[in-house]
C-alpha cells in the first residue's frame, strides 16, 4: 500500500506515554480506593472495602450526590434551552458571518474558566451589573444575593457547558432536512406547528445526547462551584478536591472519584439509550 510496514511503529511512543501517565495512574486510583485510613490520618496499604463502606454509609455522601445531581440537572436544562436556539440558528443561517458567529458561540470554551467566573462575579455580585441596574430602576432597595450560593453556581455552570452542548447539537442536526419543514409548510402548517410537529421531534436525539454531555460536564465541574459557590456550595467535585489536597485523605478521595465515575457512566448510558430510542 501507500505506506511501509514500519508505519505502525509510529504509535508506540504516544501509546507508551499514555500508558505511563494515564492508564497506570488511573489503575493506581482504583488501587488507592482499597486502602484504609489510620487513626492518625495516614494511609494504610490494604485490600479492603472498609473505606468504600464508610464513604457510602456517610449521610454527607448522599447529600453531596443529591446536590450534584440537582445542580447538574438545573444547569443542563437552562443551558439546553439556550443552546438549542443558537444551534438551530447556526445550522440554518446563510449569513456570511456564520463562521465568526460559530466561533463566538463556542468562545467560552476557549476563554479560561477563571476569567468567565470573574465576569459572573462582576455581573451577579452585590455591587455587580444586575444589582446596580435593579437598584437604579428602583426594583429593590438592598442587593440580592446572586453569587456565593446555588443561584450563582447554576448560572455560571450553565454558561460554561453551553458551548459543548452547541457543538453536540450541531453535530446531531444532520438529519434535520430543510425540505421536510418546507413540506410541512406547504401542507398548511403554521411556523409554530411546523416547529412542534417536524423540527422538534427530529432534533430530539441530538437534544438527548447534548443533555447527557452537559450533565456529565456539570457533574465533574470543579472551578465554577468552587469560585462562584464561595465555600457554601458542596458537591462531589469540590469534596473530592478537598479530600485529596486539604485533607490528604487519598483513599476517601479515590472512593468518591470512582463513585462519581460510576454515576457518570450510568448517566451516559442512559442518555445514549434515550437518544437511540428517539432516533427511531
Amino acid at each position: 500500500m501507500t505506506a511501509g510496514s514500519r508505519l505502525p511503529w509510529l504509535v508506540v511512543p504516544a501509546a507508551l506515554l499514555l500508558l505511563a501517565v494515564y492508564v497506570w495512574p488511573t489503575l493506581g486510583l482504583f488501587r488507592t480506593a482499597f486502602n484504609e485510613v489510620g487513626p492518625t490520618g495516614a494511609m494504610i496499604e490494604a485490600w479492603s472495602l472498609k473505606t468504600t463502606g464508610e464513604v457510602l454509609a456517610d449521610s454527607f455522601t448522599i447529600e453531596l450526590t443529591l446536590n450534584s445531581l440537582w445542580l447538574s440537572l438545573s444547569a443542563t436544562l437552562i443551558a439546553l434551552c439556550m443552546a438549542y436556539p443558537v444551534s438551530l440558528f447556526l445550522f440554518r443561517t446563510q449569513s456570511r458571518f456564520r463562521g465568526l458567529l460559530a466561533v463566538i458561540a463556542i468562545m467560552p470554551m476557549l476563554v479560561s474558566g477563571v476569567v468567565r467566573v470573574f465576569g459572573w462575579l462582576a455581573i451577579l455580585g452585590d455591587r455587580g451589573l444586575v444589582n446596580s441596574l435593579a437598584q437604579w430602576l428602583g426594583l429593590i432597595s438592598t442587593p440580592m444575593r446572586l453569587v456565593f450560593n446555588w443561584t450563582g453556581v447554576t448560572i455560571g455552570l450553565a454558561e460554561s457547558i453551553m458551548p459543548y452542548m452547541i457543538l453536540a447539537l450541531l453535530a446531531g442536526f444532520g438529519r434535520l432536512d430543510r425540505t421536510l419543514e418546507e413540506a410541512a409548510r406547504s401542507l398548511g402548517c403554521t411556523p409554530l406547528r411546523t416547529f412542534l410537529r417536524v423540527t422538534l421531534p427530529l432534533s430530539l436525539p441530538a437534544l438527548a445526547l447534548a443533555a447527557g454531555l452537559g450533565f456529565v460536564l456539570s457533574m465533574s465541574a470543579y472551578i465554577t462551584p468552587k469560585l462562584l459557590g464561595g465555600g457554601r456550595v458542596f458537591v462531589l467535585a469540590t469534596e473530592i478536591f478537598e479530600q485529596a489536597t486539604t485533607n490528604t485523605n487519598w483513599p476517601v478521595a479515590a472512593v468518591l472519584a470512582i463513585y462519581t465515575l460510576v454515576l457518570l457512566l450510568a448517566l451516559l448510558m442512559f442518555s445514549n439509550v434515550a437518544a437511540r430510542r428517539l432516533q427511531r
Binding site: M82, V115, I123
Partner: peptide, 20 residues
C-alpha cells in the same frame, strides 16, 4: 424569531467577557 432568540443568548454568552 429564531434570530432574535439566538441574539439574546449571544448577549448572555458575551456578557461575562464584555464585563471583564
Amino acid at each position: 424569531v429564531l434570530s432574535t432568540l439566538a441574539g439574546i443568548v449571544y448577549a448572555l454568552i458575551l456578557a461575562p467577557i464584555v464585563v471583564v
